[in-house]
Design a protein around this nucleic acid. Structure first.
Length: 485
RNA sequence: GGCGGCAUAGCCAAGUGGUAAGGCAGAGGUCUGCAAAACCUCCACCCCCGGUUCAAAUCCGGGUGCCGCCUCCA
């Protein structure tokens, strides 16, 4: 079954066909670097990271571009508040974003262009728009004339006259039409400026993405992504600018991710429920955050709650516990000793051909508009089967199974750590501060008590460990421990 | 006011006309010194009312209730 993607432009799922065989050209609107990155930014980044990883898994080469907006009103506002140049503000938050994304295991795009680094491209595109009559100058500004672009409103499904009758269009004397938007803003005191044919100033918000996507991916490329909120006006304006300038189609597939709510409320600064990635990373393992974010289809809203995070953690514990079992089984039953024609060998052979049940179900789910929630279900089903096999003492094929889980998990960005490293990971915040050495000493005492059949003492030690977030598990092969987080 | 989306078990969440995935919680069981982990079993007339169809959670119409965008926002 071929990959189908929901295309915002047509409001339907459509079979994906790249413009160039084997290559996907993808542009995603990144952040405006004016404040700490929040869980909503993380969702967008993780969603498109998942999409990139899936394309790669399918054998595509992905030309992935995600921009940083480093020239903007909000950045300027912040720079005034702190009395430092706006470039310092932008640099700071770009750096933070990179650190946060790295922590979340989000792959770095091939290019991460900035507005300030592409002034020449931006100015060139505005010149073309002026020359072709789609733009006009007024009071030192340059505006795009929406009436000159007949298909304006097509992407977001709006009509010009309907928008005009809306109550919330700003009044601006310089604009010929209230819906016209700025391509270039004339210099104002205290703002960063660049020289242009229309005098000093800075670009409007929308033109940067048109100019930068063109610079790296060409006039016409496969997929353009971003948060749902960007559909209008940002992406609508991009379409108008890009198509007007190039005279070519712009983007084949528009992909928009849904929002993150916090405890059933929209996240906003005024509500005080602004959840930064940093604060999350202090409390949860990065892969737990990822698992939480991909447990819901990317277009639906996802609600952040402590309960949902606890569930995500529990689920990831389950996967890693299985990996640990498989690793141990693989060590106990080397592949070489697999009996000819045995279950293990058949499993391994199926794996080689990429026809395992897991791969097939996982791929089928992801092919359906990157349905990570359904893909996860395939992972759970495979895990239950593998655990049952291990329970029965069937150790053959464990190494291949573990490798397959890691491979498929890798597309989702989970199961990429060593099981014990994950299971014993301790968040920066919360939990008792106990060292592995201390735990080992307690376990030694406890096992001595168990050997002496002093179960009261053994249970007392276990309770004490549990009170400090250490879960003790006895088995035939010895005692294991992990942190409850 | 305009445009769009969503309503599936206590909670979260898939579901592409053919008789409801998966996870969490819960109940019972196997295993265990006891636990834990793991496994097995159980747990939904898919918001309401019409319609199309042999057949609808899925399509159409009408309600009701949430949510988003239209202004900076991932």
């Amino acid at each position: 079954m071929p990959l189908v993607i929901y295309n915002t432009r047509t409001r339907r799922k459509e079979p994906f066909q790249p413009l160039e065989p084997g290559v996907v050209r993808l542009y995603v609107c990144g952040i405006t670097a004016y404040d700490a990155c929040h869980v909503g930014h993380a969702r967008s980044a993780v969603v498109f990271d998942l999409i990139v990883r899936y394309f790669c898994w399918q054998g595509y080469r992905v030309r992935y571009v995600r921009n940083f907006t480093d020239v903007d009103d909000k950045i300027i506002l912040r720079s005034r508040a702190e009395n430092v140049p706006s470039s310092v503000i932008a640099e700071r938050y770009i750096q933070e974003y990179r650190e946060d994304m790295a922590a979340l295991g989000v792959l770095t795009p091939e290019h991460e262009p900035t507005v300030s680094g592409h002034m020449r491209d931006i100015i060139a595109m505005i010149e073309v728009l002026l020359k072709k009559g789609y733009a006009y100058q007024a009071n030192g500004d340059v505006y795009f004339s929406v009436e000159k672009f007949p298909r304006y409103g097509e992407l977001s499904g709006r009509q010009l006259d309907e928008m005009l009758s809306g109550a919330r269009v700003e009044a601006n004397e310089a604009k010929a039409n209230p819906l016209d938007f700025a391509l270039w803003k004339g210099a104002k005191p205290g703002e960063p400026t660049w020289e242009s044919p229309w005098g000093a100033g800075r670009p409007g918000w929308h033109i940067e993405c048109s100019a930068m996507s063109h610079a790296y991916l060409g006039a016409h490329f496969d997929i353009h992504g971003g948060g749902k909120d960007l559909l209008f006006p940002h992406h609508e304006n991009e379409v108008a600018q890009s198509q007007a300038a190039s005279g070519q189609p712009f983007v084949n597939f528009w992909v928009h991710n849904g929002f993150v709510n916090i405890q059933h409320e929209k996240m906003s600064k005024s509500l005080g429920n602004f959840l930064t990635v940093r604060s999350l990373l202090e409390r949860y393992h990065p892969e737990v955050i990822r698992l939480f974010l991909i447990s819901t289809h990317y277009r639906s809203p996802v609600d952040y709650t402590e309960e949902a995070m606890a569930t995500a953690k529990k689920n990831l514990d389950y996967f890693y516990t299985l990996l640990q079992r498989l690793d141990a089984a693989a060590a106990a039953a080397p592949a070489a000793s697999t009996a000819p024609g045995g279950a293990g060998e058949r499993q391994a052979a199926a794996g080689e051909e990429g026809e395992s049940v897991l791969r097939r179900k996982f791929g089928g789910a992801m092919d359906n508009d990157f349905n990570s929630a359904a893909a996860l279900a395939a992972l759970f089903e495979a895990s239950t089967t593998l655990n049952a096999r291990l329970d029965r003492g069937e150790l053959e094929g464990s190494a291949a199974a573990a490798a397959e889980l890691r491979e498929v998990g890798g597309v989702l960005g989970i199961m990429q750590r060593q099981p014990l490293e994950y299971l014993r990971w301790q968040p920066a915040l919360g939990g008792a501060r106990v060292t592995e050495e201390w735990v080992a000493a307690q376990l030694e005492r406890r096992n001595a008590a168990r050997r002496a059949r002093d179960y009261a003492e053994a249970d007392r030690i276990r309770d004490e460990l549990q009170a400090r977030g250490i879960i003790v598990e006895d088995s035939k092969d010895g005692t294991q421990w992990r942190r409850s987080g």
